[in-house]
Design a protein around this nucleic acid. Structure first.
Lengths: 153, 153
DNA sequence: TTGTCGATCAGCAAGAACTGCCGATAGAGT
DNA sequence: ACTCTATCGGCAGTTCTTGCTGATCGACAA
């Protein structure tokens, strides 16, 4: 995703103010390529700004998403995850702990023949690989509980 | 999906009773290859059995899913959809009206290189094509509202 | 520097989708 | 015929997300 400075510019250009809360959310997102839930972002930001409300986090996340600086994923885990990675890519989801990895492999063959498209105008192709991640698949007893969004990508 | 008779056998084999409610749900599902929500199944079954409870529909749908006679889809539309089609296939989702079509095309190239799998043991690969269906894309003003589960597949 | 208007806050509630609980009754299968 | 399961109504709880309100804070422009 873009840098904090770029996001600052972009918010101003859209007439949105760049508040400390929003800056903190920007930093939380631009750090690494995770796929946090809103709650996870809230937890991160709360550490340095304890009075921020969950409401504000949702608000800013949605602002970012509608500006196209973020995409939201729904991979069936109940809660929406936010993906700061703007490049086209796919996902690898652990069915056991909920961890999500990015897959940057390009699959050239995945185009729908016109015959199958039935008049659809396709705008996006998402591939989700599901399985068990190394931690969950290993015999050693590790974290088997669904985590809360800090996916190690 | 299997025939109503086969499902009846299978339920009995699992020690589950074949009640009129369940039979009606079987019929509602085995008709065509739609991807109904639980509410949609409820609506269908209610037509011929007005006293059935939504609770029972969820129950039976989950029974079928855990017996592997049905798979549940979460395409980010809020509610779970149930897919009676057991063959491996992919989906075409209209971002405008929520319609879901099946895609039976096989994509041979879609295997994740070991390098990208990061220790994941992949058990399923789902491809979702998103776009606008013919009805929603056409200039003529048609149904633009999200429908309730009666996807024409 | 000052003023304005947007952002944030707390806190509560609603909404959707789904599941749990209960006692009572109907009915499937043996 | 009998037993045990399924279903019923009906309500409440859960989780995730958004709406509302009025007051205050502060970013940004004049």
């Amino acid at each position: 995703m873009k840098s904090v400075d770029q996001l600052t510019e972009e918010f101003r250009a859209n007439g949105l103010k760049v508040t400390p809360q929003r800056q903190s959310i920007f930093r939380a997102l631009s750090g690494s390529s995770v796929h946090p839930t809103a709650e996870a972002v809230y937890a991160l930001v709360s550490a340095e700004m304890p009075t921020i409300s969950l409401r504000t986090v949702y608000q800013t996340l949605n602002d970012l998403a509608s500006m196209g600086e973020l995409s939201s994923l729904d991979i069936g885990s109940g809660s929406t995850r936010f993906d700061p990675n703007l490049e086209p890519h796919h996902h690898l989801v652990c069915t056991s702990c909920g961890r999500i990895d990015d897959v940057h492999t390009v699959f050239p063959g995945v185009d729908l023949p016109a015959a199958s498209a039935a008049g659809f105008q396709i705008t996006a192709t998402e591939i989700v690989f599901r399985g068990r991640c190394a931690d969950c698949a290993s015999p050693a007893t590790r974290s088997q509980q669904p985590n809360t969004g800090d996916t190690h990508a």
